[in-house]
Amino acid sequence: MIHFKQTEIGYKSPLINVADLTLEAGKVYALVGRNGSGKSTFLRSITGQNPLISGDININSVSFKKANAIEKSKTIAFVESKFDGIAFLSVADYLALGRAPYTNALGRLSQGDWDFVRQVANEIGIEAFMQKDTLSLSDGERQLCAIARAIVQETPVLLLDEPSAFLDYANKQILVDKLLQIANEKQKCIVFSTHDLDLCIENKLEFLALKNNTLTKVNGLNKLELIGLLEGNL
C-alpha cells in the first residue's frame, strides 16, 4: 500500500530517515513520539504539503513525487486535529465537499455522489446531524463529521493528525472503534498520530514509533516498554 524507500523527511536538514517501510491496507497504525519528534511533519510529508528531501513515497505503486493535485486528492484524505466548524455550513454540505476530486468544474454532485454521502453518514452514525450547522455540534460530533468527510473522499489512505486530542474518554474509544471498522470494511490504510498510549494498547493497535530520527514499526509492547522506547531508555 504505502511504501517508503530511502525517504528523507524534514525541512532544511533531515528530521526523519525512513530506509524501508511498508504500511498495509486494512490496518490502523498509531504514530507515536514525543513532542517535536516530527509526527506532524511525517504526515504532512505523505500528503505532499511538506516536500521530501530525498527518496520517494509510493502509494499503490504510484510515485507520489510525480502525482498531480487531483491524483493525490483521490489517494490521500487528511483529517486535522480539530475541526472548529464553519458558520452557515451544514454537515451535509460539509461532507459533500469531500466529493470535490470527483465532481466537474462546477462542483455539482450527482445522485450517486449524494447517495454515497448519505451512506457514509449512516456508517459513521451522524445521519441525524445532516441538516445541522457545523458550528452547532459538540467537539466529538464535529470530529466524527471531519472523519466522515475524509471517508467521502473515497481514498485508499486516511491520515489523521492527533484526532483524539480534544475528545473525552468515551469519544476517544468511539473514534478508535470507527477507525478499526473503516480500515477493515473498506480496506483502507489508516495512520493517526496520538499521545493516548493506553487507548492504543487496549485496542491492540500497531505502533509507528518516532525516536532519534528513525521510525520503527513496533507490535505488542506494554506501556512501560513503549514509553521506554520513546524516551530512549530501551
Binding site: A69, I86, L97, A100, P101
Partner: peptide, 20 residues
C-alpha cells in the same frame, strides 16, 4: 464557484481536495 466553496475549509484542506 467550486474553488470558492472549497476555500471555505481553509487553503490547506482545500488544496488537499485538489484545489489549485
Amino acid at each position: 464557484v467550486k474553488p470558492l466553496n472549497l476555500l471555505v475549509l481553509g487553503e490547506n484542506a482545500a488544496s488537499l481536495l485538489g484545489l489549485k
